[in-house]
Design a protein around this nucleic acid. Structure first.
Lengths: 191, 191, 191, 191
DNA sequence: CATGAATGAGGATTCATTCAT
DNA sequence: TATGAATGAATCCTCATTCAT
């Protein structure tokens, strides 16, 4: 806890936990500090404001979650079918949600408009856009059903979030994972 | 505005608007009262607390939204195919979201854990369960793919919410509605 | 204390007292509220911020003090000698300082740059300018010594403030008043 | 900077600058330390508290400013006219204000009651008293007008401060200096 | 001795709720 | 019954001071 890095980590880690449990707006700095094992004032040595802390936590985890999406799109392996790329993206997001359930709940099950900065808004947009490209590419190849890609993306991503929300706590087994992946692919693919 | 009923209505109506715009937590009683055209103190004659008001608003609209779900399930018309019942439910929810965009945004695009009472939690559960029954019935008839009905329901309802969220503002045309209904049905139906 | 006016007055009155004793920056809202006999939150119903309260107090008293200056200049009685007008202004300011020692100490013995708004800065300028006009008029009539009017004004007003500061507490008798008036007039007048 | 003496000097020098710019109360220890090129903690090795530092700075400069006053009084050159001694004192103070504008502004244009210790209060008194003696001596010799010496002193010193305050920034030329010296002497001298 | 991160009391401000009118 | 001013606990943030390295 003596390394500045460690304190910063302790704060970000505690922030994720308490923000996830009580939401950003519902969390006071005092309990957050207590959870991190530091004094309130110490938080302000590492983050200029609660808002900055919220954005730092959001940015860190959204970036990691986005990596799964962006990687799976970027990996433009020659003639790899869209289905395979979708599968990679889906399982990547599932892996993230399973490994970091708090981070996922914080990111996708809560609202952030009130404090998100422009950089984070852009980051969120970028990830959305990357997923949209996968849809468009699939449509171009006749593997994904025609129609407004935004609608399809919202449906698929909404489905993912809905599933994660409902499974939060109970856990996801292989069977359920396969079910949801196949079901959402059927939502997307050309019938 | 002299009838107690009318005042209560004015308050609930104003609450829906401001809660939707600023969220429950982000709304102070003073602007709410101003919007309703009453004094702050008057709100407390009709609702014992902000929490109670939030729950009243939630209950009213969740009940109405739930009616579309429950009705479409209850209407156990002999051998009506599940697809038709799903279509009725889907279009019912869409109609609700289109007719009452504020209410829908309030109900499904915001978080309520911090103040929802047990009754409302149960109500939400009940609606979820009703939708789950439609899934189960469809599975029993071989029309909906096998697997954990909760997963399928979360996927489908999540897709619905995701679509509504992304379309909020821009609006939903017939084409997009048809697209989403078909896509989500393909998510549910036996492949 | 039930009239809003009375509460506002109580707050402004308490503010003058505590600001004078502890300075604006050295005064916390809690003791101020206690002195005014109201809760801290009540202050914010009447003044949007501590800064606004400080400015309101400053404005009120600076306006009153300035009236003595401006009136004595405005009263452009035909051929009234400058000496007479100076005497009126001087005694007016003395009367103010004697009747409202707290207000005078607050206004002239403390610093306000950190919170004064533009309106108050302009007000202060205006009063300074009015006094400057008296000097210029006196110079034009050959009654006040030639030279930069700003310098003469700063000397005279500084002398006034210095005297009031040093007399704060002990009080000013007729003899001392006459002495200071004559001395400052000799500072100004053509030798 | 390795000599304790040098560090102490760096701190006192930085303190004068930042206190003058932001006032004692408006200055935090961190920027003060940064300006001095030392760590915050190091300040506390040389001064037990912010208050002690403020008093040290005040004491140093008030002593130097006071020297001009006290010297001009002490120099009881036989039959030197009071006018000459006043002139020396006046020009001494002007020289100080011109050579050390920050120090003068800090000392005379700011408030120190909130932290000044007894020693500094006594020092201030002593200088005041010394100047008062010059007045009394002048009165005894019939060169300064009769009346309460304290009043005359406050008037004269207030005039000096007022002039310096108003000239801060723009600067004092020879003409204005002569004007002010003569004017204040006319304030003091027997008419 | 110097450092600067950590501390936590204290300050301004907000807002759900109460209650005198 | 309706009003809205009053309340004061709770919030975010600052900063003088301490102390482990």
């Amino acid at each position: 806890m003596t390394q500045p890095r460690e304190v910063r980590e302790a704060i970000m880690s505690a922030a994720l936990v308490v923000f996830t449990e009580y939401t950003y707006g519902g969390t006071a700095m005092a309990p957050l500090a207590e959870r991190a094992g530091v004094a309130v004032g110490s938080i302000y040595r590492h983050f200029p404001s609660k808002e900055a802390l919220g954005n730092a936590v959001y940015r860190r985890w959204k970036t990691r979650l986005g990596a799964h999406v962006i990687d799976s799109v970027a990996a433009d392996v020659a003639d790899e079918p869209i289905r395979a790329r979708f599968g990679r993206m889906w399982r990547g997001m599932v892996a993230f949600a399973v490994e970091h359930p708090d981070a996922f709940a914080f990111l996708e099950l809560q609202q952030h408009q009130s404090y998100l900065d422009a950089e984070n808004a852009a980051l969120t947009e970028r990830i959305y856009a990357a997923a949209g490209e996968l849809i468009s590419a699939g449509q171009a190849r006749g593997e994904i059903r025609p129609g407004d890609p935004t609608v399809l993306m919202s449906l698929a991503y909404g489905a993912f979030i809905g599933m994660c929300a409902s499974m939060r706590g109970s856990g996801l087994d292989e069977e359920r994972l396969a079910l949801s992946e196949n079901a959402v692919w059927d939502l997307l693919r050309c019938p």
